[in-house]
Structure formats: structure tokens, C-alpha cells
Design a protein around this nucleic acid. Structure first.
Length: 161
DNA sequence: GCCAACGTTGGC
DNA sequence: GCCAACGTTGGC
């Protein structure tokens, strides 16, 4: 048995919001368009079905985590890289040797109260989150189990399952 | 809208 | 392999 891991994934709500995920077909989406190698590696190599995901709204006012999702499909090729008409098209990525990967995530639950970035910054136990590390811009990043539980408590969900 | 910090690109 | 220039991210 493998232990469940936790992650945080950033999205600009104007591009794709947590509510978009809730309303999506099967409440599921493929996390496409990521063009950063570190984030790619995380999705390709580390994220597993059942892992918990904090959905983060960047460039929002205030930036916040509105709720949680879960990984429902592990890393596979990002098809948007193959499509010349797609804004994320990358001619260097070929179907026989893809460069970019996605995972699928599914809506799990909205927080009673979104956990805002100022709230996270003000919470002592969350000072070491990758999210608030100075200079960190990673769009897919690891979250510790402790951080996960604190965020859920702040969001009003409490202990999950 | 500004701009600092970061990642990538490409000339040499 | 260095590093300047450029594009992007994302908080404010």
C-alpha cells in the first residue's frame, strides 16, 4: 500500500476556476497546459490516483484555496502540446516522445470558507508551505499531510473521511 | 497596471 | 557553458 500524498495546483480563476471544475463533465478535468519542467515531473512521476489536491486560485482577489480535489488519473501525455491551433502547442513534443504531461483531477468538496493567502501567511504552522516560500512560482507543488489537515480545518471541513 | 523573481532561449 | 535578453508568473 502506498501512502496518500497531497498537492497544491494553481489556476487563474479567469482561465479555469474551482467552480468550473465543479460544473465540468464528471466534475473532472485534465490539468493541461503546464509548461514548467518541475511541475511536469511532479505530474508525470509522483502524483497517484487518490492523492489530495488543494485547488488554488492565483491572480484572484484575494488569492485563495476554495476547496479540494483528488487525482483520478495518473500522468499521461498532454494532448494540447500536439495541436497547432492550441495556445499551448509545442512542436518539440511529439506523440511518440511527449515532453508534457497531465493528470486528471476531480472535484471533491468546496470549503465552507475559502482559505485565503493572507490567512495562510498569518498561520504559524503554514509558514513552510512551498506556496509562501519567497520566490516560489511552482504551479504544481507538494503539500505535507500536516499542512493539508490545517488547511482543511481552516476551510471548515475538518478531518476528511 | 506595475514590477520583482523566475525560467527559458539563443548568441557567442 | 556562460549569461544577457526576453517572456511569464503572480502578488500587490
Amino acid at each position: 500500500m502506498t501512502l496518500k500524498n497531497y498537492w497544491l495546483m494553481k489556476s487563474e480563476p479567469s482561465a479555469f476556476s474551482f467552480d468550473d471544475l465543479r460544473k465540468a463533465k464528471s466534475q473532472t478535468t485534465s490539468w493541461d497546459g503546464v509548461r514548467n519542467y518541475q511541475a511536469r515531473n511532479t505530474m508525470r512521476d509522483s502524483m497517484q490516483v487518490g492523492d489530495g489536491v488543494l485547488f488554488y486560485h492565483s491572480n484572484a482577489d484575494p488569492p485563495c484555496i476554495p476547496g479540494i480535489a483528488e487525482v483520478v488519473r495518473e500522468g499521461y501525455a498532454d494532448h494540447t502540446a500536439f495541436d497547432p491551433k492550441d495556445s499551448h502547442y509545442d512542436p518539440k513534443s511529439r506523440k511518440e516522445s511527449p515532453i508534457w504531461y497531465v493528470v486528471d483531477i476531480k472535484f471533491v468538496k468546496a470549503f465552507k470558507e475559502p482559505v485565503t493567502l493572507p490567512k495562510i501567511r498569518a498561520t504559524k504552522e503554514l509558514q513552510k508551505m512551498v506556496l509562501v516560500r519567497p520566490g516560489s512560482r511552482l504551479s504544481v507543488q507538494p503539500v505535507t499531510r500536516q499542512e493539508w489537515e490545517i488547511i482543511l480545518r481552516l476551510g471548515g471541513i475538518g478531518r476528511e473521511k
